[in-house]
């Protein structure tokens, strides 16, 4: 990828929902660019369109109008199957409630995105085990999610988000369900990912969390209210331009 091209570019994106007779405008012409290696926090009061934005960024939903370019490719009008492929190849999801599949073991959970990419069994198992040891879960591979603590479960989710080597990692309140020490552990892991040059977009309520990234975007009423870059480059050695 040419370093000049943004990893993510939203251009005048609108999203309207029809709820019976009422039409709700969740996003009203939102434009946004994220460069490779950036660590972006999205903040805003509830109802500001954070979730809608995240769903759009995650290719779980399509904009009503406007364009969405991911890695330079316009994906705002792709078919359902093509969107699935984009999700499995280019995106990593981390949710507030971990969203692990309960009947699968840790390593199987990590493998899920590779399974839908059609990666062979041996290869995907090797990769999943490598990533699991990166997040410190090498001794928990055959455990079921309910046997793990919240922090451990979120680490499984992070491993799952990393296993397909995504262009973009999306996190929705990743520390929302965790106590402060496990939350801190997760945030340190994000710092590490940022340091490794990965691109992170994180939705949060917590200003403390948003301070750790290099950029904070505030939303209000479906538009960008403010877009701040903090010069806190201590945690981004050789990262963003």
């Amino acid at each position: 990828m040419p370093p000049s091209a943004p990893i993510l570019k939203l251009d005048e994106v609108r999203k309207t929902y029809r709820m019976g007779p009422v039409t709700v405008e969740a996003l009203r012409g939102l434009s946004l660019e994220v460069e490779a290696g950036e660590y972006v926090s999205i903040m805003g009061p509830s109802g500001c369109g954070k979730s809608t934005l995240l769903n759009l960024l995650g290719c779980l939903d399509r904009p009503s109008s406007g364009r969405y370019l991911l890695g330079g490719e316009d994906i705002s009008n792709l078919e359902d199957d093509a969107l699935s492929l984009v999700r499995s190849q280019r995106l990593g999801f981390i949710f507030q409630s971990y969203n692990l599949i309960q009947q699968l073991t840790v390593v199987e959970n990590i493998e899920v995105p590779l399974y839908y990419q059609g990666v062979s069994e041996e290869e995907s198992r090797a990769k999943a085990e490598r990533i699991a040891s990166m997040v410190g879960l090498e001794h928990r591979l055959e455990h079921k999610p309910f046997e793990l603590s919240g922090g451990q479960q979120q680490r499984v989710a992070i491993a799952r988000a990393l296993v397909n080597d995504p262009l973009l990692i999306l996190a929705d309140e990743p520390t929302g369900n965790l106590d402060s020490s496990s939350g801190e552990e997760i945030l340190r892991m994000f710092d590490r990912l940022h340091a490794e040059g990965r691109t992170l977009v994180l939705v949060t309520h917590d200003p403390g969390v948003s301070q750790r990234g290099g950029r904070t975007i505030r939303l209000r009423d479906g538009r960008v209210e403010s877009d701040l870059r903090h010069p806190k480059s201590g945690s981004t050695p050789g990262g963003s331009p």
Binding site: S88, V112, P113
Partner: peptide, 13 residues
């Protein structure tokens, strides 16, 4: 929920 997770992680219909 499982279906949603799988779809988010790249499962096609």
């Amino acid at each position: 929920r499982e279906i949603g997770i799988r779809r988010a992680l790249g499962a096609r219909r």
